[in-house]
């Protein structure tokens, strides 16, 4: 019976023209399952990180090829820039350098003074960061995320988590490092949060990227919080990633609604996220240079936050952690 059955099958074999291998449905199920497994592996486990790094390095020549036309255009533009323009720019830059030299002299003096004062207080030294200049290669090709690709990578000792700033403020943070490039998540990305401080009154908060438009949100602040439109936000430095005092954003809009206990605060980043080509990658100092009570900032973050929402904003300026954490001297308070 069985041999006969086989014989029957052989007779029914389709001609080559109609043979198309496994059915589309079978292929769909197979490849969908494979993709789902890959997505799960990539999002939850770290197995594919190394593979991705190597493959992106292989992709590098293609990217250079794709970037060639725009690079050529820019080069030609630069080549034909006029004599007058260059002269004017040179003059402007010279003036800027002069101004900054003067500012730097004052800064040196202040730093010396600060060190002395810290020594007097027997406080810890402030963190010294090392930085590297990088150039933006292109914006991320994924429209869902706010990311840029910078031309510095593992070869330049860039590590994940390094802060990225430009001349006007904080831009973002390195989230993936490839051999020759690295991926920077901008502060406007939904997945990035940055601890900030209002320059005017030292109020601390955490700014979250909005994701959709180029703005930041300041959630979890009470409706009667002491924030005005136009206030400058600077990094507070308590995260150990961003150096303290860098400009992050300025408040553009404050909305309160009777239905919500929180204010709806929108700010625009000061850094030229979409404009500049050169950025500075600031790497995190090693753990041994951090203060021994390096864990305190996290505690104090939580404490001030809960307290703030409980007491209200009038006391925000008194809300410094000194009362609660008398041993914490590593972080200077913002000038009132």
């Amino acid at each position: 019976m069985l041999p006969g059955f086989h014989h029957k099958l052989e007779q029914q074999q389709a001609p080559a023209f109609f043979a198309r291998g496994p059915s589309p449905l079978a292929r769909l199920v197979f490849f969908s399952a494979l993709s789902l497994v890959l997505i799960a592996t990539d999002s939850r486990l770290q197995y594919l990180t190394g593979l991705r790094q190597n493959l992106v390095a292989l992709l590098q020549p293609l990217e250079v090829l794709a970037n060639a036309p725009s690079q050529l255009y820019r080069d030609i533009n630069e080549y034909f820039s006029t004599h007058n323009y260059l002269l004017a720019e040179n003059q402007r830059l010279n003036q800027q350098a002069l101004k900054q030299d003067i500012a730097l002299q004052r800064l040196n003096l202040l730093m010396l003074e600060n060190t002395n004062l810290r020594n007097l207080l027997q406080a810890n030294k402030t963190m010294v960061e090392s930085s590297l200049l990088g150039e933006i290669m292109h914006v991320s090709r994924d429209p869902f995320t706010k990311k840029i690709i910078v031309n510095r990578g593992q070869r330049n000792q860039i590590v994940t988590g390094a802060a990225v700033v430009d001349a006007t403020g904080v831009i973002g943070q390195v989230t993936r490092v490839y051999p020759l490039s690295s991926e920077v998540t901008l502060i406007t990305d939904k997945s990035l949060a940055i601890p900030v401080q209002v320059e005017r009154n030292g109020l601390r908060a955490i700014a979250f990227g909005n994701g959709r438009n180029n703005t930041l949100d300041l959630p979890y602040l009470p409706a009667n919080v002491d924030i005005r439109s136009g206030d400058k936000l600077v990094t507070s430095g308590i995260d150990g990633i961003y150096p303290a005092g860098l400009a992050v954003a300025s408040i553009t809009k404050i909305e309160t609604s009777p239905s919500s206990p929180f204010a709806h605060i929108i700010c625009t980043p000061t850094g030229g996220i979409e404009n500049h080509r050169q950025v500075l990658l600031v790497s995190i100092p090693n753990n041994d240079t951090l203060s021994p009570n390096a864990t305190i900032p996290h505690a104090e973050k939580g404490q001030t936050k809960t307290e703030r929402s409980a007491k209200g904003p009038q006391k925000a300026s008194e809300n410094t952690p000194v009362k609660h954490l008398p041993t914490n001297t590593s972080k200077p308070h913002a000038p009132e």
């Binding site: 494979l34 890959l38 997505i39 592996t41 992709l59 090709r141 994924d142 869902f144 991926e183």
Partner: peptide, 11 residues
């Protein structure tokens, strides 16, 4: 190329 999770565009 887009830097998304492996398998998203594939699926």
């Amino acid at each position: 190329a887009t830097g998304s999770l492996f398998g998203q565009y594939a699926l």
